[in-house]
Amino acid sequence: MLSRLLAESPRFFTIYTAEFLLQAALTTLALSAGGCLVGLVLGFGIAVLRRTRGLAWLPARIVAIGFSELFRRIPFLVNLFLVFYATQVAGLEAPVFAIAMVSVCLIASAYLAEIGRAGLDSVHPNQWDSAAVCNFTAWQTLRLVVIPQAWKVILPPAFGFFLLFIKDSALASQIGLLELTYAGRNLNNRGFMPLLSFGSILLLYFALSYPLTLLGRRLEARLANARHR
């Protein structure tokens, strides 16, 4: 094994491989970051819909609850195939990146809706009362009072979810998206030994995820200490 490693290394560690892997790593990052950002906005919207009152909003509440409860119970891999075949059936010529992105957005919205809900719960109900008697509209209450208080509670777990998805997005390789995991299989298929192919992408995932984990920890500590804004 060692001799093979030594023999293959010069052929493996080239500018070409580096570029190929870097491109794939960027795709992984773009997929997770983009999906989680969209998911954060949609998820917060779902969390807000869940808090509406009155009969008129009942359908919206049911859809919001159903969506977040359902999509948190479907595996990412199955979700990917659902979106993949749904676009086929709809006759859309969507690139795999778009398909994977839609799938990530769906799941991220469902999970981040739960995180958004906890964020909304962290804002004391009397803040809503105060805003109401001052004639704030629902949107003004959210923008001026609730979001400025809730985001500190939402951001750390949302960032944690983003970190999870950097790793979970590996499954997007299964619909043929050229992200890091697909790149690893690709290198393996091109004849490089598994240790080099999979070892290098394991290290790349680590290099992507670990610094962000440390960053997340610092962010969390900072937010815990910061009292305002």
Partner: peptide
């Protein structure tokens, strides 16, 4: 916790046979 489970399993499945 900083690498994907899928790739960990790839590693076990494809690399261990070489050992």
């Amino acid at each position: 916790t900083n690498t994907p489970q899928l790739v960990q399993i790839f590693f076990l499945f494809f690399v261990l046979p070489d050992a």
